[in-house]
Computed example of a mutant assay.
Amino acid sequence: MTDEFPLRERSATDADVAEPDLADAIDEVLEAAMTLLSERGDAAVEDGDLDPVFRAHVVEILTEAWTRLAGLRDFGYLQAPASLDLGLMQATADVLLAQGLHPAQPLVSANVLFEVALPAFASRMPVPTVTVAQVLHSSVFGRFVPGALAYAETLRGQLSGVERVAELRLARQLRESILPELAGDRPARAAALVDALSWDLEHPVPQDFPDSLLEYAGHELPVLAPVQVTEIGTRGRVAAPAAEELHAIAVEAIRNARRHAGASRIDVVLIWRPSTLVLTVTDDGHGAPAPLEELGARTHGIASMRRRAALIHTRIRFETDETGTTVTLTCPTDASEDARA
Rank of each mutant, 00 (worst) to 15 (best):
M1F: 08
D3T: 02
F5S: 09
P6F: 08
E9N: 10
E9V: 11
S11A: 11
A12V: 06
D14L: 03
V17H: 12
V17S: 09
A18T: 12
A18I: 14
A18L: 15
A18S: 13
P20W: 09
A23G: 10
A25T: 03
D27E: 12
D27S: 11
L30W: 00
E31R: 13
A32Q: 09
A33I: 04
A33T: 05
L36F: 10
S38L: 01
S38T: 11
R40A: 14
R40Q: 14
G41A: 05
P52T: 10
A56E: 15
V59R: 02
E60S: 13
E60M: 13
E64F: 01
E64D: 15
L69H: 02
G71Q: 09
R73N: 10
L78W: 03
Q79H: 09
A80L: 09
A80Y: 03
P81F: 09
A82V: 13
D85K: 14
D85T: 12
L86C: 13
L86R: 15
L88S: 07
A91V: 06
V95G: 02
S109H: 03
V112W: 03
L113M: 11
F114T: 01
A117L: 06
A122K: 07
V127R: 07
Q134F: 10
L136E: 02
L136D: 06
H137M: 12
F144Q: 06
A150Y: 02
E153D: 15
E153H: 14
L155I: 14
L155V: 14
R156C: 09
G157A: 12
L159T: 11
S160R: 15
S160Q: 14
G161F: 15
V165R: 15
E167L: 15
E167A: 14
Q173I: 09
I178M: 10
P180S: 08
P180A: 10
E181P: 05
A183L: 13
G184M: 03
P187F: 03
A188L: 11
A188K: 11
R189W: 02
A191H: 04
S198W: 06
S198V: 04
H203I: 06
P204Y: 08
V205I: 12
Q207Y: 14
Q207W: 13
P210Y: 04
P210D: 09
S212H: 04
L214W: 01
L214M: 04
G218Q: 10
H219Y: 08
E220F: 13
P222K: 07
V223W: 05
P226I: 05
P226A: 06
V227T: 11
Q228N: 15
I232V: 15
G236N: 06
R237Q: 07
A242D: 01
E244T: 14
L246S: 07
A248N: 09
A250D: 00
E252R: 13
A253M: 10
R255S: 08
R255Q: 15
R258Q: 12
R258M: 05
R259A: 08
H260N: 10
G262T: 00
D267N: 06
V268Q: 02
R273Q: 03
V278A: 00
L279R: 02
T280K: 01
V281N: 02
T282G: 03
T282R: 00
D284P: 02
G285P: 01
P291K: 01
L295D: 04
R298N: 07
T299I: 02
A303V: 07
R306F: 00
R306H: 00
R307A: 11
R308T: 00
A309K: 01
L311H: 01
H313T: 09
H313R: 13
F318N: 02
D321F: 03
T323A: 00
D334P: 01
